[in-house]
Simulated assay, not measured.
Amino acid sequence: MTAYALQRRTLAGAALLLLVAAVVFVADQMVRTLGTLTAVERERDTWQRPEEIIGSLDLRPGQTVVDLGSGAGYFALKMAPLVAPTGRVLAVDLRRQSLAFLWIRARQGGLANLAVIHGEPDNPRLPPGPVDAALIANTYHELTAPDRILKVLFTSMRPGARLVVVDRGPRASTESRSEATAHHELTATAARDEITRHGFLTEFTDERFIDRAADEDIWWLMVFRKP
């Protein structure tokens, strides 16, 4: 074997070792992140009241439900079994990494009826077909194009479909929409005005849905219906 061939083989071996090391590192980080997500969500279960939020959607097997701003799947993973086996959960988010972890978690849990969708700030990119319910949890205040998002949702949802929005707002505020978004909060009144302007009817409002004394914000919950 020539010195050149030996050098190439040595470099190839080193490259393979680096690749294996990188794969092991990524896999280890993924396992750690999944473990962290589980721990964080268990703590969140103690105060977020997920059963009541999901219950407000009145889900049934066979329905299609949208989780707009799904993140890594806190609500989507809970809703998928409720609409199975023929129903679907369409989990929409702007963050590819969150969707990647959600996809992995859904496959680990055998939830084949959960689809992840990489949306755009002004378009959730929903597939064709009627939507029976939609959830926007801890996300509405982040919307930079709420009118466009609401228009798409209203068009996609069947008559009678429910839209549940839960988010946090300041205890007292005179902020504008842009200022509130920057502070990751929005009043229930501001959100309700925007949503009803697009044709949704208000079914229920709880402006103190979650009120923890230690928090600066109060979480509100509202249920809307498409007529």
Rank of each mutant, 00 (worst) to 15 (best):
P127S: 13
L59P: 06
L77V: 07
R125S: 06
T38G: 05
V92R: 04
D45C: 03
L68H: 09
L102S: 05
S56H: 13
P81E: 01
D58G: 08
I53Y: 03
P128G: 08
L99Y: 04
T36Y: 09
I117A: 09
T86R: 13
D45K: 05
L102I: 03
L94P: 00
R107P: 13
A76K: 08
G73H: 01
V89C: 07
P85E: 13
V83K: 01
L114V: 11
L114G: 13
G87E: 07
P61D: 05
S56M: 12
G55S: 08
L126A: 11
A72C: 10
R44K: 15
P85R: 14
R105L: 15
E120Y: 14
K78E: 00
S56E: 14
W103F: 08
P124F: 11
R60M: 09
A84K: 07
I53A: 11
L82S: 05
I53V: 15
K78Y: 00
V92I: 08
I53E: 06
D45V: 02
T36K: 14
I117D: 03
V40E: 12
Q97W: 10
E52D: 09
A112M: 04
R49W: 01
R96H: 13
T64S: 12
S70Y: 06
P50D: 00
P61K: 01
A100F: 13
M79N: 00
G109H: 03
L94I: 06
A80E: 01
V116G: 06
F75C: 02
I104V: 15
N113Q: 07
R49P: 02
S98Q: 15
D122T: 11
L77A: 00
P121S: 12
E52L: 11
K78R: 15
I104Q: 08
V89G: 05
D45H: 02
L114I: 10
L90F: 11
L59H: 01
N123P: 12
Q63W: 04
P121D: 13
V65R: 07
G62Y: 04
Q108Y: 04
D93W: 02
L59G: 01
L68F: 10
R105H: 05
F101A: 10
I54L: 14
A115P: 05
Y74D: 00
D122C: 06
R105D: 00
T36E: 10
N113R: 04
D93L: 05
I53F: 07
L37Y: 15
R88Y: 04
R49M: 04
A106D: 03
N123A: 14
A115L: 11
T38I: 03
H118A: 14
L57R: 00
Q97T: 07
G110F: 02
E120R: 14
I104M: 12
Q48C: 07
D93Q: 06
G129I: 05
Q97M: 09
R42W: 02
R107D: 09
V92Y: 09
V66F: 12
P121C: 11
R42A: 11
V116A: 10
E52Q: 15
A112L: 05
F75M: 02
A91L: 09
A80R: 00
L102V: 02
Q108D: 06
T86A: 13
G129F: 05
G109M: 03
P81F: 01
I117M: 15
P128M: 06
G35M: 08
P121K: 11
A100G: 14
D58K: 11
R95Q: 11
V89E: 02
A100L: 12
R96Y: 14
D93G: 03
Q63D: 06
W47M: 07
